[in-house]
Structures are given as C-alpha cells and as structure tokens.
C-alpha cells in the first residue's frame, strides 16, 4: 500500500471498445460433434500405454526373465543325469514366470497410479468425465497387452523346454497340460496384473501400490515359514496352498502340496479377487475428487 504511482488504467484502453452489454451469439466450431464411447477411451489408452518407455522396460524385462530363466533351467535340467523322471517339461517355465510376474504387477500399477503422480489424471478425467469408462478402458488395454505378451513368452519357453528335453526321459505333455501351461498361465498372470491395476487406482501412489502387490505375492509364503506351532498347522497350509506362487505352480501340476487349489481353480480365485478390487476401484473413483 504505497503511494498511488502505478497508473494502471492508462494502459487499459483496448477492451473498452468491445461491446459491453450485447453478447455475440457464441462460437460455432467446424469440428463435428461426436457421441464418444468406450472405443474412444480404449484408443486413447492404447496410445498412452505404447508411448511411454516404462511399458517397453517392464515388458522387455519380463520377456527377458521368462525366456532367459527358462533357457537356463532347461540347460541345467538337460545336463543333470536323471533329467525329468517322466515329468512334463512344461513345469520348468514356472521360475521365469514367477519372477516375470513382478514386471506385470509393476506395469499394471503404473497404468493407473502413475497418472496421479504426474497430474495427468486430471487431464484424462477432463477429457473423459465418465470415470468408469477410463478405468474400464485402462483395464481392457492393459489386460490384452499383458495377456498377449505373457502368452507368447510362455509358448516360446514351453516349446523350448519340450524340444530340449524330448529324448531325456520327459513325458510329452497332454493337450490339457499345454493349454494350462500356456493360455492358463498367461490369463492368470494378466489377471494378477489387472488386480495390480485396480490396486494402483485405489492407492493412487505407484511405489505404495507396487509394494502392496509384491507383498501380497511373497508375504503368505514368508509368514507360513514362521508358523512352527502345531496348532497353526491349518493356517500354515492354507497360506502355502493359496499363496500366489503356489497357485502359479498349479498350472504346471507341480503344486507344493496335494490339497488346496487344483486344475483351473487359481484362475477363478484370481478372477474373483480382481472383480472385488475393481468394484472397490470403481466405487472410490466415482466418490473421490480427482
């Protein structure tokens, strides 16, 4: 509040000539009006996911882990003397996919949570105010990408193992085993990623959501390890059997235990968990301010 020396009004003559009371009839754009739908949001999310380097990194490392570890296991097993005692060679893909699933989890979380870190989420929601549509589009695009990449990697490793160990006493896998070891495992890993995507949307923080998801994969096994007490036997077995690594192994019919989930059970369990997480993510997305 100093002396009145800044003579502002002198510098403001231009707009005074504009009409003050009668308003022009507004602007009409030559761009056609479109009733947008989920397809528009999916196209948008597809552009987003393929135009950032983190997608290439996470998927690149995933393929590297699955193929690399798969090849190494194949070589080691082929060298050892009584190679596979009548076992299906497909089971060897387990190790690569277990580690690789961390990449899928990361990409799933980043698909939603990273937008909160950058502020992009507000740009996204302004462009598409139907928040459910945004989440659905993200889910569809991510699931397809994750499923295709996992399927291709799992198939490659499966063919590799079968070829390497053919004459080594391994039994040749049945059609059902092929289906579970490729399509089944790819669907399971992609769903695990989709669960991470929903968790990312709920937590809205990349590092936090990734930590939670990796904890969900590892914690049950670690906790079970420390349950020595006889009275906790039941809990320990359940933690073992329903842990994500053990569910993964069910697809290769080499579960760590005899009871617990079998056949295609893990897929339905993961589908249920993902559905619940998505319901929560949808509800919170509608309720919260962006």
């Amino acid at each position: 509040m100093s002396s009145p020396q800044s003579q502002m009004p002198q510098a403001a003559p231009t707009w005074q000539a504009a009409p003050g009371t009668s308003f022009p009839s507004g602007y009409t754009s030559p761009i056609p009006v479109v009733r947008t739908h989920l397809g528009n949001a999916i196209a948008s999310e597809w552009t987003k996911i393929k135009s950032v380097r983190s997608t290439m990194w996470t998927l690149g490392v995933f393929v590297l882990l699955v193929i690399g570890i798969g090849t190494l296991t194949g070589v080691v097993v082929a060298e050892s003397d009584p190679a596979l005692d009548g076992e299906s060679p497909l089971g060897l893909g387990f190790f690569g996919l277990l580690l690789g699933s961390m990449c899928i989890i990361t990409l799933g979380v980043l698909t939603t949570a990273s937008e909160y870190g950058t502020g992009m989420i507000r740009t996204t929601m302004v462009a598409c105010p139907s928040r459910g549509r945004v989440l659905a589009a993200k889910g569809v695009v991510f699931f397809l990408v994750a499923f295709v990449v996992t399927l291709v990697s799992a198939c490659l490793v499966a063919f590799l193992h079968v070829a390497m160990l053919e004459g080594d006493g391994a039994k040749s896998p049945t059609g059902g085993e092929w289906l579970k070891g490729t399509v089944g495992i790819a669907a399971y890993v992609a769903l695990l990623g989709l669960l991470s995507l929903a968790v990312g949307s709920i937590i809205r923080h990349s590092a936090g959501a990734i930590t939670i998801m990796i904890g969900a994969v590892l914690a049950p096994l670690v906790i079970a390890l420390f349950m020595f007490s006889e009275s906790l036997q039941g809990v320990r077995d359940a933690l073992f059997e329903y842990s994500i690594p053990n569910q993964l192994s069910v697809f290769y019919s080499n579960s760590l235990s005899q009871s617990g989930p079998s056949g295609w059970d893990p897929l339905w369990i993961m589908l249920g968990a993902t559905a619940v997480a998505f319901a929560a993510a949808f509800a919170l997305l509608e309720k919260r301010d962006v």
């Binding site: 479109v34 947008t36 950032v52 502020g119 507000r122």
Partner: peptide, 17 residues
Amino acid sequence: KDPLTYIGALLEAKAWH
C-alpha cells in the same frame, strides 16, 4: 459426451507424463 469440444482448460503446469 465429448467435453473437449465444449470446453478446453489449461489446468496446472505440466499435468502430463
């Protein structure tokens, strides 16, 4: 349904990836 053709907004600086 296509909000960007109704209203365009400059939000905070660098609200993108």
